[in-house]
Design a protein around this nucleic acid. Structure first.
Lengths: 152, 152
DNA sequence: TATTGTTATACTCTATAACTATA
DNA sequence: TATAGTTATAGAGTATAACAATA
C-alpha cells in the first residue's frame, strides 16, 4: 500500500506474448481447472474422461488403439482403464481376433456418466469461451484441430 | 495382418472433437514436446524459461509478481528461482522498498540465454504452426490471448 | 492482521525400460 | 521377431497447509 513504490505498472509479457506455446499452455491450464471444478466432483479427470469418450465413440476398440488416438502411451493406459473398469464404467474383455488385446466397451453406467459429463463440460467451455463470439469459437476450434493434423 | 479383422477404420473422436479443452491440451502437449526437443538441451523447461522472460521484460520485478503474471504459485516459484540463481542466470537481491521481497534481474548470462532460447522457440513454433497460414497464425494468437483476458 | 517467501508434502500426467503372453 | 498389455520407476507441474520475517 506504500505509495513510495513507483512500480504500480502492469507486468509486461512482451516476449512470451509472441509465443503460441505460452498461450496454449495457459489456456490449457485454465480449461483443466474449469474441468476439475465442474466434472471433478463426478470423480472425473480430463484424461480419464477422454478415454471414456473414445470408447463411447468406438465401441469394442482395443486398449492400445484408444490410447494411440488420445496420445496416451500403452504403459499409462493400464491404470486408467483399470480405474474405469473398477468403477464399473467400462467393460474389458479379451478380443476374439487377438487374444493379446482387450476390447473395451462402456457399461450402462459409463454411458450415463459420459452424457452427464458432456453436459457439464459444455457449460464450462461456454464460460471460458465467453470472450469470443460464436464465429470466433468455431474458428479457434478449426485452427486448433488443424494443428493436430486432423481435418476438423 | 489378419484380414479377419473388420476394423481397419480410423478411430472416431466425435465427442472430444467438439471440445476446445481437448484440442488445447493436445496442442499444448505438442508444443511442450517441441520445446523440450529444441530448448531442452540448453537445460531449459517451459516454466523456467517463462520466469526468465518475465524478468527480462520487467527488470527488478519481485518474485511474487513474476509468479502471479505467469500463474505460478508462490510456493512453486521458490525452487524455480533458486535454480535460475544457482545457474547464474538470475540475480536475486532484497528489495529496498520491502525487505520481505526479492527483486529479480537477469545476469549477462541470463540475457544471452534468453536471446538464444527465443531463437530456438521461434524455429520450433514455425514448424508446429506450419499447417496454418501467417494470417491464421495471427488469428490463433489473437484468439488465445483474448481467452486469457489479455488485450493481445 | 496481512503479506513475502519458505518448507514439506501429495497428486496427476507423462516418459522409459524391462517383462509376459500371444501373434 | 514383433506386438498388446503389464510393471516399476522417475521426472515435471501443480496444489495445499503451516511457518518465519517483515509490513
Amino acid at each position: 500500500m506504500a505509495a513510495a513504490d513507483h512500480k504500480v505498472e502492469t507486468t509486461r509479457l512482451t516476449l512470451l506474448g509472441s509465443f503460441a506455446g505460452y498461450f496454449l499452455r495457459r489456456a490449457s491450464q485454465r480449461f483443466a481447472a474449469g474441468f476439475a471444478d465442474t466434472v471433478g466432483p463426478m470423480g472425473m479427470r480430463q484424461v480419464l474422461f477422454g478415454v471414456l469418450t473414445v470408447i463411447h465413440d468406438n465401441p469394442g476398440i482395443r486398449q492400445g488403439a484408444a490410447g494411440e488416438a488420445l496420445g496416451i502411451q500403452r504403459a499409462n493406459m493400464v491404470s486408467l482403464v483399470n480405474e474405469l473398469v473398477d468403477r464399473g464404467l467400462v467393460e474389458r474383455r479379451v478380443s476374439e481376433s487377438d487374444r493379446r488385446a482387450f476390447a473395451l466397451e462402456l457399461t450402462p453406467a459409463g454411458k450415463v456418466l459420459v452424457e452427464q459429463g458432456v453436459e457439464r463440460i459444455r457449460g464450462n467451455e461456454d464460460e471460458l469461451l465467453a470472450p469470443l463470439t460464436p464465429t470466433e469459437r468455431r474458428t479457434l476450434l478449426d485452427l486448433l484441430s488443424r494443428l493436430d493434423g486432423s481435418a476438423g
